[in-house]
């Protein structure tokens, strides 16, 4: 499994998958995709990198422990919900901000998007935690 070809292409594959996962995440509100799928793709990317380059390498690349990402995601989702308190609407009510970019298109920022990014991080963090823990346990033996 751990062939030289795999080891060589794994970093590129991982990078591509992470970029793709972000793309899937951001288009999720209008096209198929979203935080859950994006998170799973990103987690798979990290798992692949872990298998090819070793868990310690991945941990170094991630800087933070993967479970931290999950915690950050829940926090982000909760904050997205709490924003509604500032405009005196119920918890988790979606708020939208449309910024006109001048060339006829507009940029839509919203709390549901923030929430979806939170979901992305939770799935990414929790599942890569699991995968890395199991891979590492193998290395430890």
């Amino acid at each position: 499994m751990n062939t030289i070809i795999f080891r060589t292409i794994a970093p590129y594959l991982t990078a591509l998958m992470v970029v793709f996962s972000i793309f899937v995440l951001l288009r999720g509100h209008n096209e198929p995709g979203g935080g859950f799928i994006g998170g799973l793709i990103a987690a798979s990317a990290i798992a692949i990198y872990g298998i090819s380059a070793g868990v310690s390498e991945v941990r170094r690349a991630l800087v933070f422990h993967p479970i931290t990402f999950a915690g950050f995601g829940v926090l982000m989702a909760a904050i997205a919900g709490l924003m509604s308190a500032f405009v005196d609407v119920p918890f988790l009510m979606g708020l939208w901000l449309f910024i006109d970019l001048g060339d006829g298109s507009e940029l839509a920022l919203s709390t549901p998007m923030l929430f979806d990014i939170g979901v992305y991080f939770v799935v990414l963090g929790a599942i890569s935690t699991i995968a890395l823990a199991l891979e590492e346990d193998e290395d430890g033996k």
Binding site: G34, F36, L40, A126, I127, I130
Partner: peptide, 10 residues
């Protein structure tokens, strides 16, 4: 189902 799949996996 979407959430159920992810939770089921966890």
């Amino acid at each position: 189902i979407l959430t159920a799949i992810v939770i089921g996996f966890s």
